[in-house]
Computed example of a mutant assay.
Amino acid sequence: MSAPRAVLSWSSGKDCAHALHVCRRDGLARIEALFTTISGPSGRVAMHGTRLAILRAQARSVGLPLIEVTLPWPCPNTEYERIMAEETAKLVADGITHMVFGDLFLEDIRAYREEKMRRIGLTPLFPIFGTPQTTEFLAAEMMESGLRARIATCNAEKLGPDFAGRAWDADLLLDLPEGVDPCGENGEFHTVVTDSPEFAAPLTITPGNVETRDGFHYADLQLAAE
């Protein structure tokens, strides 16, 4: 059987980038586009704070079109679900049958996605889903594959501002406080991927200034050409 037609939920971070690699490597799905939500007022990826210039450069490097869905701020959950239902209905109308997610082990998030996808007629795929105990090995697998990333934002209750902007590498993992997941799956940090086996060429990104707001440290990552 041929691989199903799919779009990939793309946050700009390492996990979705690795999910793309696994889908292509193992023939799990034919990814036809990246699907990203943008915070309207900031013009950046929500939570990660990724600039559009980086987001679009990532899409070019993996050779896929980028579907940008702009969300208002504030965005109540009812409004978020309405917008997402409208946008995903377009995918179904175009013959897309699956949406791929880079979730790692949070069962409640997986169940939420499964419920929402079922309502709109899409099948969710979780190609790198495992357990909290497997993320250490998954981090090593990502790095060994050639994936490179930087921390874009981190939870101020878990990590200090010096972590924002740092490369997500073996040295950083050694510096993480006890109890912080090496992949940040509990929300301790979010990353921006700069290279992966699927990139035609790596992105050169500089950390920029670090700003603390709303309980998070944000590194204003920028393309070197900007």
Score class of each variant (00 low, 15 high):
residue 4 P to R: 02
residue 9 S to C: 06
residue 9 S to F: 04
residue 29 A to D: 03
residue 35 F to V: 13
residue 35 F to L: 15
residue 35 F to I: 15
residue 36 T to H: 02
residue 38 I to Y: 07
residue 45 V to K: 04
residue 45 V to I: 15
residue 47 M to P: 14
residue 48 H to W: 12
residue 53 A to F: 05
residue 53 A to P: 06
residue 58 Q to W: 06
residue 61 S to K: 13
residue 64 L to C: 09
residue 64 L to I: 13
residue 67 I to M: 14
residue 68 E to L: 03
residue 76 P to R: 12
residue 77 N to V: 13
residue 81 E to S: 10
residue 88 T to P: 03
residue 98 H to C: 09
residue 99 M to A: 14
residue 102 G to S: 05
residue 106 L to H: 04
residue 106 L to C: 10
residue 108 D to L: 14
residue 108 D to A: 15
residue 109 I to Y: 13
residue 114 E to P: 10
residue 124 P to K: 13
residue 125 L to D: 00
residue 126 F to P: 06
residue 129 F to V: 02
residue 130 G to R: 02
residue 137 F to W: 01
residue 139 A to S: 12
residue 142 M to F: 13
residue 148 R to L: 11
residue 154 C to G: 12
residue 162 D to V: 03
residue 162 D to Y: 02
residue 163 F to I: 05
residue 167 A to Q: 08
residue 174 L to I: 04
residue 176 L to C: 09
residue 178 E to S: 14
residue 180 V to F: 05
residue 183 C to S: 12
residue 187 G to A: 08
residue 190 H to Q: 09
residue 196 S to Q: 03
residue 202 P to I: 04
residue 205 I to T: 14
residue 207 P to E: 10
residue 207 P to L: 14
residue 207 P to M: 13
residue 208 G to E: 01
residue 210 V to C: 07
residue 215 G to M: 08
residue 218 Y to N: 04
residue 219 A to W: 06
residue 223 L to K: 10
residue 224 A to K: 14
residue 225 A to V: 11
residue 225 A to D: 15
